[in-house]
Design a protein around this nucleic acid. Structure first.
Lengths: 211, 211
DNA sequence: GTCTATATCGAGATAGAC
DNA sequence: GTCTATCTCGATATAGAC
């Protein structure tokens, strides 16, 4: 059935509008009528493209999680120091979260709206992502580059700190994207005991390499 | 009407169960029947204690926000250095968030479920709390104790970092509450450029004073 | 103050014409 | 592939007996 092909334009439109609505109001508070009307269709027409409301959510969450891991792997290389890896991770994470805040918000809030099997698969992808940062932190602690009380707690602390950018960042706000990223890179590195002078130095190196 | 007095036991029971259900499934996904059945009542009996579903949410959110600000004011004194204030704030914030994760989660997620007027009043209380941390960070930067790129961004970064404890902390987990708090105090201070040795020292001082 | 019964509405999903 | 019409269910809220 061609209508269920990922590149069907009506289907893509529905996905994009559902993403925005789910992020704004929450999955349970959005009706199929809301989604249909936002793209100028009748409610029943959605079922030509998706099996159910839940299947729309699953596709949004799977797409986000897979893309996040894929982009992370493309961006990072593991042939550098833990400090350089942390800088690269932070730059990637904040930039991605600034660009796709709706996906991030839905992934954070609506995993519970999934049936158990679907939820488990997505939690695995989320854990994979978080553990990739934990490996960096552990490597830095082992090498004596980083100082922290507990690697697992500190990893979660950094992830939460960076992800919070989605709550307040606005494209027309006081600070531009690069400044915001620089702020978070400094905060993340300093949180692990890297002095501010070294931060500025390393950060600059990384920016020349990757941006 | 006595049934709507705050200390009515059935009313308190309803509030407590609604809090747990809203945190687990989200406001929109919980029905009045769910709340009533969880305390052994019929659905219509709730209306003897609350005017509407929305009024239950308002009472939970208002209670949380007022208590949070009140407890913070009781805990902190502003006659010490910015570093000492930050330690006290972090200890309070993490401890409170460990103790009342459901309130925190609902406050984060369900402000959007409120009608505009009610939402505005609560956003004001939330901002008041966040600005109290921003004042500490600003004081530390001005005094040369703290290093950061942008005070507002770094304040939000710290709040998000600390609040994240609600996502993963379990009372029967690997780490006890004091160790978790110590981890976050270290992370917060280091993020502002305070060296780890000083952190251990100051933190100990603070613990002796307050615990 | 709790109950049963009911009103009114909107939800997700399906059937079948075009 | 979209439409209209409809099914079935459960939602919030109210009325009135006890």
């Amino acid at each position: 059935m061609d209508s269920k092909h990922p590149r069907n334009p009506t289907r893509s439109l529905l996905l994009n509008h559902a993403r925005r609505l789910f992020a704004e109001r929450g999955f349970s508070a959005v009706s199929m009528r809301d989604i249909a009307r936002s793209v100028g269709l009748q409610q029943s027409s959605i079922y030509n493209h998706f099996d159910s409301k839940q299947s729309i959510l699953i596709e949004l969450l799977r797409g986000h999680m897979l893309t996040l891991n894929q982009c992370r792997n493309d961006w990072l290389s593991d042939e550098v120091s833990a400090t350089e890896q942390l800088i690269a991770f932070t730059q990637f994470h904040v930039a991605y979260h600034i660009d796709f805040p709706d996906d991030v918000f839905i992934a954070y809030m609506e995993l519970r709206s999934l049936e158990p099997d679907n939820r488990k698969a997505l939690v695995r992808l989320r854990d994979e992502y978080e553990l990739s940062l934990q490996a960096i932190v552990q490597q830095g602690v082992t090498a004596g580059e980083f100082q922290c009380v507990d690697v697992a707690v500190h990893t979660r602390a950094i992830i939460a700190m960076l992800t919070g950018v989605t709550v307040w960042y606005r494209h027309d706000g006081r600070l531009d994207k690069d400044t915001v990223i620089h702020s978070y890179v400094t905060a993340a590195l300093q949180s692990l005991g890297i002095p501010a002078n070294d931060v500025a130095h390393q950060h600059e190196l990384k920016k020349v390499k990757h941006v």
